[in-house]
Design a protein around this nucleic acid. Structure first.
Lengths: 150, 150
DNA sequence: GTATAAAGTTAAGCCCGCTTAACTAAAAAG
DNA sequence: CTTTTTAGTTAAGCGGGCTTAACTTTATAC
């Protein structure tokens, strides 16, 4: 019987293997779409903002100027990935939203990333699955709590 | 009692929260070093290649031409992050290796990313920690097996 | 030993992201 | 109602990444 590793060790080990694998797929997919990484990241951001996302949200999130965000978004509007409308409640502001094309693209990317995870799930025994589900639920909840406080 | 979620769901939920959080820190740190993302990524790659890494390893990994890799690496050599030596067993090839400065930088970045994970670990009860350690060990092993086959 | 392939380098040139600066238009403050 | 602040756009210009093309040097094939 070996002593179980401390939690920081197992968290780190998992993170290393997970990040390494995940990053590869991520950049590879982005490139295959013909979009640049900044463009792709903006689509992701708008996607996660479910519906309402102003131009300033973009520039803050990526730590760039409004000018830069505006230009990036302009290209995505040209490419018909994003719809840019006037905010009726503040006519200076814009409401950004993915078009169907944009949504499809991001969802394809997310599915691509899920695929590996799903395979991982399938490779486990029923007992292992149970343990993993329980632990990940704990972790996800804890992460959300930490996020809301910090 | 609610039914436990299927494993694909808990894996995906965890992945979403983990990726979202991790990416932010990642790009933010890279930017704060003054290096560009491609440059930073190359340092990471050399770091994980522990010791021996040729120029072609870089170009293959990032799907760019040898010319591009060579120019990127040149900048990192100028910045004293990378040491570029001739491979004695094949004098056409180069051996890339991080300098101490390069190692320090990458390790700082990794630690930054570990910090959140460690906080997460600390926020759990002893019982939860036990479960998480067990499950992550299972997952990490399964991931490594999958990697070696696929 | 000559021909061919492979590893890297260098330079020219393109596109892209980003910043600054000047601007428009709308909202908030006084 | 005027002033100031806020949201966003546009254009000029810089620097970076990447490609192609031409080249050097070393290894491999025949």
């Amino acid at each position: 019987m070996t002593k179980p590793p401390p939690i920081s060790h197992s968290l780190r080990a998992w993170m290393d293997v997970f990040m390494h694998r995940s990053m590869r797929g991520w950049t590879h997919f982005a490139k295959s779409t013909g979009l640049t990484m900044p463009q792709f990241s903006i689509l992701m951001q708008v996607y996660h903002h479910k519906g309402v996302c102003g131009m300033s949200d973009i520039s803050e999130r990526f730590d760039i100027t409004n000018a830069a965000a505006s230009q990036l978004v302009e290209k995505l509007v040209q490419g018909e990935y994003i719809e840019r409308a006037e905010d009726p409640s503040d006519r200076r502001a814009k409401l950004l939203q993915l078009t169907q094309k944009g949504k499809d693209l991001i969802e394809a990317s997310v599915n691509e990333r899920y695929r590996w995870m799903d395979e991982l799930g399938k490779s486990l025994s029923a007992e292992e699955k149970g343990k993993v589900v329980e632990a990940l639920t704990i972790l996800t909840e804890a992460a959300k709590k930490l996020e809301n406080r910090g």
